[in-house]
Nucleic acid binder design. Structure first.
Lengths: 110, 110
DNA sequence: TTATTATATCGCAATATTACGATAAATATA
DNA sequence: TATATTTATCGTAATATTGCGATATAATAA
C-alpha cells in the first residue's frame, strides 16, 4: 500500500500537512535560515553553503517553492529565491491556534 | 541513495525538521486537532474518527509521541493521549523567529 | 556563432513512509 | 481460570523521498 489517503481528510488538513512536510527536512530548514540571513540570494550561494550536490539542492528548492514557502525571480542566468511570507503565516497561525486551544483548556489529563 | 545526511546539519536543524516531519501528515494533523477538541482521549476514540485501520493509527500515535508532540498515560486497558505543549512551543518559536526576521528585513528581493 | 555559466530535469539506486491484516501483550470481566 | 477488550508490534507490499551523476535548458559573454 503506502499511499496516503489524502481524499479522506479535509483540505485544511492536507494543506497544513503539506507545509509541515516541506519544512520537515534539515536541508530545507537550512535553506530557509540562509534566506533569512541574506538580503537576496541565488541558487549557487545555497549550493556552496549546503553539504549537498547541486541537483539535490535544486530539488529541495523546488519542493519549498511548490509548498509556497519560497518564491523565485529570474535574474539573468541566475534565479533569485526568497521567503514567501504567506506560506509561513499560514503555518504559524496553526501553532497559534494550538497554543490558544491549550491555554483555554488547562489539560489535566497527562 | 536516499539516506538523509543528518550528520551534516546542526542539531537544531535536525530537531526542528523532525518536529515538522511528524506534523507533516494529514492523519497526524487530525489526531492533534482531535486531542485539542476533547478533554481526554484513548486510542479507540481516535480510531473511530479517522479513516484508517487501528494498526495505522497506533503507528501515527507512536510517531507523534517520539517527536514529543503528544504524551500518553496508561489507564487500565486504555491509554490516554494528550498534547505535549513543549514540542509545540519549540516549533512555534521557529515560526515566531521567521516572522520577526522577515519584519526586520523588509525583503525587496522578489 | 560558440563557449561559458547557472539552474533544472532525468534516471537510477537506496532508504523511508504508509497502510493493513494478523498476532502479541496486557488488563479487565465473567 | 477463561474470555473479552484494547493497544502495540510484526511482516509485508506499495508508494515516496533522498541523493547524485549525467544531461538538458536558458541566458550571458567572447
Amino acid at each position: 500500500m503506502g499511499l496516503t489517503k489524502s481524499a479522506q481528510f479535509t483540505d485544511a488538513q492536507n494543506e497544513l500537512s503539506a507545509l509541515a512536510k516541506a519544512i520537515g527536512h534539515p536541508a530545507r530548514i537550512a535553506i530557509i535560515e540562509y534566506l533569512l540571513s541574506v538580503d537576496t540570494c541565488i541558487c549557487g550561494d545555497i549550493v556552496e553553503v549546503l553539504p549537498l550536490a547541486q541537483a539535490t539542492v535544486s530539488q529541495h528548492l523546488k519542493e519549498l517553492k511548490n509548498a509556497g514557502l519560497i518564491k523565485g525571480n529570474i535574474e539573468g542566468t541566475a534565479i533569485c529565491y526568497c521567503i514567501d511570507e504567506k506560506g509561513f503565516e499560514r503555518t504559524k497561525s496553526f501553532f497559534d491556534y494550538v497554543m490558544v486551544s491549550l491555554q483555554n483548556k488547562r489539560n489535566e489529563c497527562c
